[in-house]
Amino acid sequence: MLQTLIPLFVDALANAALIFFVAVGLTLVFSVLRILNVAHGSLYSIGAYVAASVGLWIVAAGLPAWLTFPALVLSAAFTALLFGPVIERTLIRWTYGKSEAVQVLVTFGLFLILEDLQRMVFGVQSIYADTPMALLGISEIGGIVYLNYQLALIGLAVAVLIGLRLFIRRSRTGKLLAAVVADREVSQAMGIDTNKMFMIAFTLGVLLAALGGAMATPTTGVAPGLGADTMVLAFAVAAIGGLGQVEGAAVASVIVAVAKVLAIYYAPALDAVAPYLVMLAVLLVRPYGLFGAGATRRI
C-alpha cells in the first residue's frame, strides 16, 4: 500500500511545486492591484524562454555547467525587471478603477502581444535546456526513479512560500503592501505611495511567474502555447484557493496536483479535466474559494 502511495505523494508534490510558482504570482497581483492579469501565463513562458536560452548559451560557450543554476534565477529576475515596471506603468496603471471587463480585455490584448513577441524573438521551435536536471542526478523512491531536480523544486516552492510570508509580514515594503491590500484609500490618506506599491507588487508577480517558467525548463520543453496552458491551470488554482490568498494558492496547488496525479494513475481519461472538476466542486461549496471571503459591497 505504502509502496503505491509514495510515488503518488511525490508526483503530486512535484506537480504542485511547478503550479504554485505561477499561481501565487497571479494571486499576489490580484490581492494588491485587484486585477486578474490574463497575460500572467505569457510572463511564465517568457521566463522559461529566457532561462532556456541562457542555459543553452552557457553550455555552448563552454562555461562551467553549474552556472546554469544561478542562470535560472537570474533569468527570472531579468524578465521581471524588464517587463514588470514597464507593463505596470504603461498598460496596467491605465486600467485602475475601470471595470473588470476592461481590465480583462487589456490584459488579454497584452497576452496576445506577448505571445507574438515570443515567436518573433525565440522562434517557433521547441527549446530544450536540461543541463541542471542532468547535473543533479536521480533518486529512487518507492521503486520509482525520480529526478533530484524534481525533489529540489519541492523544497524551493516551500522556501518561496515561507519567504513570501516573511516578506509580507516582516519587511517594511511587505507591511505597506498588506496595508494597501487591506484598504487602498486609507493607505493613500496615510501617505503610502500606492502607485509605487502597485509597481512593486506587479513586478513581484512577474518575478514569480518567470521563476516558475525558468524552474520548469530543465524538465520540460519550451514551445509556443506554453503560457496559455499554464495560465488556465493557474486560474483554477487561484479560484480554488481564493483570489488574493497566498496560502490558498499553496494549498490549492497541492489539491490540483493530487487530482491530476490521481487521474493519471487511476482514471487517465479524466487527466485533463480533473483540476477543473475539483475547481467546480470547491466553487459550488465555497464560491470565494477555500481561503477567500465574500467582499462587502459598498453603496
Binding site: Q150, A216, T219, T220, D229, V261, Y265
Partner: peptide
Amino acid sequence: STFQTEISR
C-alpha cells in the same frame, strides 16, 4: 510540455 507523472505511472 511535461510527462513526469505519466513516466512515474
